[in-house]
Design a protein around this nucleic acid. Structure first.
Length: 342
DNA sequence: CTCCGGCCTA
DNA sequence: TAGGCGGGAG
C-alpha cells in the first residue's frame, strides 16, 4: 500500500523532465473573520465521549529510502549534530472507533457538489499561492524556497508572504548559506510584516543551519525530518512534502478541513487536525489527498464558514448532518437566557 | 489552554 | 477600537 520508496525514487530520477514540477511555491492561506465565537450549542449533538487511551504508537515503516538519492545520500540520515529541540511528534492514539467508523457512502456526491460550488465563486485561496517566486529556481533552491515560504505563510496573507519572499529573493536571502550568515534583524526587516516575524526569522536561521549541517543545503525529504525543523508542524510538513518533493505522505489538514470534515461526519468527532488527518486518511482515496485541501479551504472561506455557515447557499446541505444546526446567537449568552426561557 | 504579531472588520 | 483570525510551541 505504501509505495513511497518507489515514488520518491521515480520522482527524483525524473525530476528534470517530469512535467509536474508544477507550482514552485504554493501556499494556501486562508483568512476568515466573522463574528465572535459564541458558543451556543446546546442542541448540538454531543457524540459519545470516546475513550482515547491507547498507548499504541503507530510507527510507519517508511522513509527508509535514501538509497539512491543523489543529493542527500548519506547526509539525510545523520542525526542533527547541533542540538535543537526535536519535536516530539505526538503519536495519535489509535482510536477504536475509527475501525468501526464508516464513511458516508455519498462522499463522492458531496465532493462533486462542493467542487461545483467552488467553481462558481472565487475564494481567496484561488486567487493565487505564491507559486511564481520559486518556479525559476533550480530544484534544490526551489525546495528551500518552498520550505521558507511555508514557514512564513502561516497566518499571513498571500500577498504579504509573496512580498516577503520576493524581498528575500532580491537580497539573495532565500538559500541556507546566506541566511545562515545574515543578521537575524536583517531577516526580520525583510520578512516584515508577516505574522510572528521575529520568531520566524529565528526559525529561518535555525533551519538554514540544520539544512547546511545535515542536508547539504537541501531540505529534509521525510515527514520526520521536516517536523524536526522549528516552526514546521504537521500542516506545513505535509504541504512541503506535497509541493517540494511531490511526495504525498498525508493530507494537509488545516482548521478548515478539520472543521468541515467534522461537520460532514466524515470523521468521528475529532478534537485536533491531526486526529482528523488520520481518520480521513483511513478511507479517503489517495488521489483526493492533495485536492481536498484547496477544495475545502475555499469552501470553508466562502460557505462553510467557522461560525454561521451559509447552509442556505450550500448545495449539499441535504447530505450534511450538521446543516442548519447552528442557530445564530443573536444575543449575549451570558445573560443566561435558559433561566428566563419561558 | 495561551501566547505570539500583524491586520482587518464589526 | 477591541478582538478574531490560526499554526506552532510551551
Amino acid at each position: 500500500m505504501h509505495t513511497r520508496l518507489t515514488s520518491v525514487k521515480a520522482e527524483m530520477a525524473s525530476s528534470e523532465h517530469n512535467p509536474k514540477p508544477e507550482s514552485g511555491i504554493r501556499v494556501f492561506v486562508r483568512k476568515r473573520r466573522l463574528r465572535k465565537p459564541q458558543v451556543i450549542t446546546e442542541n448540538i449533538v454531543k457524540v459519545e465521549p470516546q475513550i482515547i487511551t491507547e498507548n499504541i504508537v503507530k510507527v510507519e515503516p517508511q522513509d527508509q529510502k535514501f538509497g539512491s538519492l543523489p543529493d542527500i545520500e548519506e547526509f539525510a540520515y545523520k542525526k542533527p549534530s547541533i542540538s535543537l529541540p526535536l519535536r516530539k511528534s505526538k503519536p495519535i492514539s489509535n482510536n477504536n472507533d475509527k475501525t468501526e467508523f464508516k464513511p458516508p457512502s455519498d462522499w463522492v456526491k458531496i465532493l462533486e457538489g462542493i467542487r461545483e460550488m467552488r467553481s462558481l465563486e472565487d475564494a481567496p485561496v484561488d486567487s493565487m499561492g505564491c507559486e511564481k517566486a520559486g518556479n525559476s529556481l533550480p530544484p534544490k533552491e526551489r525546495r528551500f524556497a518552498v520550505l521558507v515560504s511555508s514557514l512564513l505563510s502561516s497566518q499571513t496573507k498571500d500577498n504579504v508572504t509573496h512580498g516577503a519572499i520576493q524581498r528575500l529573493l532580491d537580497n539573495n536571502l532565500l538559500n541556507p548559506e546566506t541566511i545562515d550568515t545574515a543578521d537575524e534583524s536583517a531577516i526580520q526587516k525583510l520578512i516584515y510584516p508577516v505574522g510572528f516575524y521575529t520568531r520566524k526569522a529565528s526559525n529561518m536561521k535555525k533551519i538554514a543551519k540544520i539544512s547546511l549541517l545535515n542536508y547539504h543545503g537541501d531540505i529534509p525529504n521525510t515527514l520526520e525530518g521536516l517536523l524536526s525543523l522549528p516552526g514546521i508542524g504537521p500542516k506545513m510538513a505535509h504541504l512541503v512534502m506535497n509541493v517540494a518533493w511531490n511526495n504525498v505522505q498525508g493530507i494537509c489538514v488545516d482548521t478548515h478541513v478539520h472543521r468541515i470534515c467534522n461537520r460532514l461526519g466524515w470523521v468521528p468527532k475529532t478534537k485536533t487536525p491531526e486526529e482528523t488527518r488520520e481518520a480521513l486518511q483511513m478511507w479517503l482515496p489517495k488521489e483526493e489527498w492533495v485536492p481536498i485541501n484547496p477544495l475545502l479551504v475555499g469552501f470553508g472561506q466562502t460557505i462553510c464558514t467557522p461560525l454561521r455557515p451559509s447552509c442556505g447557499l450550500c448545495s449539499v446541505n441535504g447530505l450534511c448532518p450538521s446543516a442548519f444546526q447552528e442557530a445564530t446567537p443573536k444575543k449575549k449568552s451570558r445573560l443566561k437566557t435558559e433561566l428566563s426561557e419561558s
